[in-house]
């Protein structure tokens, strides 16, 4: 277990997240893939804190803040998802085009 293997693992998770965000059509599926990407970023923070940082505590506190902000983001995002579902009765992001300019 080295810093490189940890970073490689984080890259793979982030790549899977990118694929999920780009292919999912369900809004919740996109949120799940975004969770995967945030998780990969957090793994980066913790592994750098373990292997490299002069101040490991700061790295741990940073990843704690990332976790807290993620929880906030998911609360708001899922509220938006439920609101969208109530209005449209579906969560297909390809058909949610209200904000798009119709002339284009």
């Amino acid at each position: 277990m080295t810093l490189q293997t940890c970073l490689l693992l984080a890259f793979l998770l982030f790549g899977a997240g990118i694929y999920g965000v780009l292919t999912r059509r369900n809004a919740i599926g996109i949120l799940i893939s975004m969770e995967l990407m945030l998780n990969a970023a957090n793994i980066n923070l913790v592994s750098f804190a373990h292997f490299r940082a002069a101040d490991a505590t700061a790295g741990a506190v940073f990843s704690l803040f990332v976790i807290a902000v993620t929880a906030c983001e998911m609360a708001v995002a899922l509220a938006i998802v439920i609101s969208v579902y109530r209005r449209h009765k579906h969560l297909d992001v390809d058909r949610l085009t209200e904000l798009r300019d119709t002339d284009v």
Partner: peptide, 18 residues
């Protein structure tokens, strides 16, 4: 936070919507 909080949020949202 993730498994106890966020994932419960997500599973509830899935059950409510789809």
């Amino acid at each position: 936070v993730y498994i106890g909080g966020v994932m419960v949020f997500i599973v509830f949202a899935i059950l409510l919507t789809s």
